[in-house]
Design a protein around this nucleic acid. Structure first.
Lengths: 153, 153
DNA sequence: ATACGTGCAAAGTATTTGCAAACGG
DNA sequence: CCGTTTGCAAATACTTTGCACGTAT
């Protein structure tokens, strides 16, 4: 369970990689990258904006969206669509470790889970599709423990 | 392979079930249900609206959205979030047969695929989550055959 | 100094809501 | 008849775009 994830590595790799592509290291995008690097799971654009504001940074929503779009296009961030009209974003770690999401339809809570057998099954299917599959996304929807017992009582 | 799926059954079951819950059988929702029942894969709300209009029905977008929301809540329709801000909808068939989606990042094409091993792996994981899982959704993203070869040339 | 990056405000889309009229049972 | 359902239009929510200014290199 305790995974030796060097917390800062994604942040550093990402910043360095952008730099080597000739991008500058401006405040807003840097702040977005650093915030994402600290997260364990996905955040909405609004959450990122609010968090940065509450840290005192005078960022604009546009910069957050622009940074996320660029990071997604360059393969550093995965965009996850769970509910209609709200996108969530999380870092893609270089070591290939990744997880999927478990959503409570009731309270809206989002949690992560990982499963090797599922990954293997996905990988097999991907080879059969005729597509050049770049990524996948699995969402399980249902009632979380709390909401399920609340409903039962 | 040949499964005796009586094509109209989902439509009928859904209408009947709504009726038994005391809902009426008005024109707009009925039209949405019938259209969905004829589909093999998912449609966007806009596609449903356009299709109904082109058939000469004077439906409003609101009715389409309201019908879809109700059908989703009652478990007759699955909502699928592929791209940001666009939801897609497809009937949930009673026999449990269902498929997942393959999306081309390039041209936006959406196709369906099904895989038993993947379903088994999902089912196993679902039991371990602590959630009461109501449904799942898998999306594979990448370049379809056409777009991949176009990029290569 | 010179582009790239940024913040603000306005625009653009997808979806939801308010309400009076239409309609099914 | 009565209450659900509907269509329209206005409102909302999230995201994108235009533009002048700031800032890293």
């Amino acid at each position: 369970m305790a995974k030796p994830t060097s917390t800062g590595s994604w942040t550093e790799t990402t910043v360095e990689s952008l730099r080597s592509k000739g991008h500058r290291n401006g405040g807003a995008r840097r702040a977005v990258i650093e915030l994402l690097g600290r997260q364990q799971c996905c955040l909405t654009a609004q959450e990122i904006f609010d968090q940065l504001r509450s840290e005192g940074r005078r960022v604009g929503t546009a910069s957050v969206y622009r940074a996320l779009e660029q990071l997604t296009k360059d393969g550093f961030v995965q965009r996850i669509d769970i509910g209609a009209g709200i996108s969530r974003f999380e870092p893609i770690h270089a070591d290939g470790a990744h997880h999927h999401h478990l959503v409570c339809d009731d309270c809206g809570k989002v949690e992560a889970f990982a499963d090797d057998e599922l990954e293997r099954a996905l990988h097999k299917v991907e080879g059969r599709t005729g597509y050049s599959v770049a990524g996948h996304d699995v969402v399980l929807r249902g009632a979380c423990g709390d909401c399920a017992s609340a409903a039962r009582s």
